[in-house]
Nucleic acid binder design. Structure first.
Lengths: 373, 373
DNA sequence: CTGAAAGCGCTTACAG
DNA sequence: CTGAAAGCGCTTACAG
């Protein structure tokens, strides 16, 4: 069976050359192990089929011009020999690896003993990975996940320059992060996860942060809260700052005590404790991430307040953490999986058409009402 | 500057050919972007240095036989041109990719709407990834993380057969998982995360599960608990079964009610609720993972029991989740990061010496006393 | 529609 | 110690 791989997974239109399949036969050559321990070469397949190597290459790549009978013979030979194309040889000529990198760039923070553990445990990155993987699967493109902190940016750059991947999805939130610009200067196709702090001509995907914060504010006000407060994200991250400003803007004139958190559970707990110590009469709390909300809920209730009766709490993300909260967390949903999928699609388009102009896509957040507010 | 890469990161001994550096100059050719947009080729470097391509290749690969002056000229030319070797071309001849796959194989479970999200959110996998990444970094070997459920095993096999990686670290816990055998049959270097259910000649790393369970039992007994119970892991996973049996064996003769959990927070909560409904007088609870313990603690306390006064609770893992529990979780530590690092080292050794006999390494768990028991 | 040939960018015996 | 040459396993104009 021959499976064509075009730009659109199920597409019929002819794809641009750059995105043409580089391996159209998938199932036939999948799991059957090679004969003599060694993988057979394309020449051996050609010999077995009684054709030239070029013809074998054509049927593998789904070239339309191959005679049906010959195609059949070749396919049988491929199945018989258990042939699988050598990816290095193919990459050498096509300049395509069928891999893209997911670079997760986080600053080193004080007390951050386990950068990797944090990254691989934060639901946000899990959702990004899930969304990108799912979007890429139909194209048979693999994701190489590369977590990096400021200490090893040059490793990442070298990896990219060596041609391991066709493009990069760059998750970078920190304002001062030099990586987006460095990647951009490489000239390799790239899509960034949010508007880059420094203006570089790169495509990115974002959620309307300020709108999300406004939805949170309006919900708290609508349920009668009058003494609002907020635990923000890190203020050197645009998402942190935007959510804070958006919240402030939406409560028009009301004074809103705030405290700067760090997007972790422990941070949320600590911040809530300090916030309530200074402002014990708060009745509505906007916490800029679900993970922080989980900690904040714990602190609020430990201090003897009922949620939502005494203090209503609303989070941001709608990650799996929202369902681990007690009470279940009312929160602002950002569609992270879909955003990551969009990044992947944009990257593919850019790989196919390198001259493509950069563009940005903004998603709308939505209010998800549960029990905490 | 020339950096040698041998088997031991800081090693002086000569490594086997298979593990010789395939790119010794690292810093010099790292971040500087190429001149004319296009990456320069090795021939261009050779011309710039006034030597042959072979000589350039030798200095890049740290061949000892190069004249010091010539080496210096070549290094300057490399720096001037911003040269970075093409990884596909190199792989084509050396048959080494300097990448290994981390395959995380989990069965599809009922109600498992988000396999990927779960994998990327479970601290266990986070620790595995962190440990393997850290161990591999000194060798400049990259990790390609490939989550897979039973539905796409053939994708994984094909990926491996295409030669994307030099070897695979296979995380597979499910007893019926056919992947370990399939990977083994490929003949590619591989190390498995636990004793394979079907005996295959593969190296693996494990923790002494039964000993861990015994430490838990002894601690509960020592603090005076007499009515013990346990929430086990899935019993089709050897780790789940071993911890249950180990616990039972250690309490000699006592009746121990048990209930089968699923290694998730929600599952732990649900199990604890049901267990206490049937056995309200339990005073010591062994929960076979920290994640389940987090849920179980919630349920136990919701039902009005004090921890540890009324019910002592002890977990298993010592993951980051243990510190998110209230009270802080007493637990059995398995050194997952170190285990993953050991897997990586074993894999490297096997890649260097393909004939190497398979072996297994077993780590000892330890009791970590905090507040819950 | 098919094949012979060139070429992708490296490494590595083999001479010298 | 260095260079010329072969070769890794593919794809792709170019002829026919």
């Amino acid at each position: 069976m021959v499976v064509r791989r075009d730009l659109k997974p199920q597409g019929r239109g002819s794809a641009s050359p750059a995105l043409r399949p580089s391996g159209a036969i998938t199932d036939a050559m999948s799991s059957r192990p090679p004969r003599g321990g060694q993988n057979p070469t394309m020449d051996q397949v050609a010999e077995a089929a009684g054709v030239s190597r070029a013809t074998v290459s054509r049927v593998i790549n789904g070239a339309p011009s191959v005679d049906a009978k010959i195609r059949e013979m070749v396919e049988r030979a491929i199945a018989d020999t258990g042939y699988v194309p050598n990816v290095a040889a193919r990459t050498l000529v096509t300049r395509r690896t069928n891999s893209v990198a997911l670079v997760i760039s986080e600053p080193e923070r004080p007390n951050d003993t386990s950068f990797l553990n944090r990254v691989f445990t934060d639901p946000y990155f899990g959702r990004i990975t899930a969304g990108a993987t799912t979007a890429l699967r139909p194209y048979d493109i693999h994701l190489v996940i590369i977590p990096t902190d400021s200490g090893d940016h040059h490793h990442v750059i070298r990896y990219l320059r060596q041609g391991h991947v066709d493009g990069v999805l760059l998750i970078s939130s920190h304002e001062q992060d030099p990586l987006p610009r460095q990647v951009h200067d490489l000239g390799i196709p790239a899509v960034v996860s949010a508007r880059p702090a420094q203006p570089i001509a790169a495509s990115f995907v974002d959620v309307d942060q300020r709108l999300g914060a406004r939805l949170a504010a309006e919900h708290l006000l609508a349920r009668g809260c009058r003494r609002l407060a907020t635990i923000s994200g890190p203020l050197d991250i645009p998402a942190g700052m935007d959510r804070l400003e958006g919240f402030r803007a939406a409560v028009k004139g009301r004074h809103v005590p705030s405290i700067e958190g760090d997007f972790t559970r422990a941070g949320g707990e600590e911040c809530a404790r300090r916030l309530l110590a200074d402002h014990p009469d708060v009745d509505g709390l906007f916490v800029a991430s679900d993970l922080m909300s989980e900690g904040a809920l714990r602190a609020v209730q430990d201090l003897g307040h009922r949620v939502p009766e005494d203090v209503a709490v609303i989070g941001f993300d709608d990650s799996s953490a929202a369902l681990e909260c007690r009470p279940l967390l009312t929160t602002i949903r950002q569609p992270v999986e879909e955003m990551a999928a969009e990044m992947a699609e944009m990257l593919l388009a850019q790989i196919a058409a390198p001259g493509r102009l950069p563009r940005s896509v903004t998603f709308q957040p939505t209010l998800v009402i549960r029990d905490s507010a």
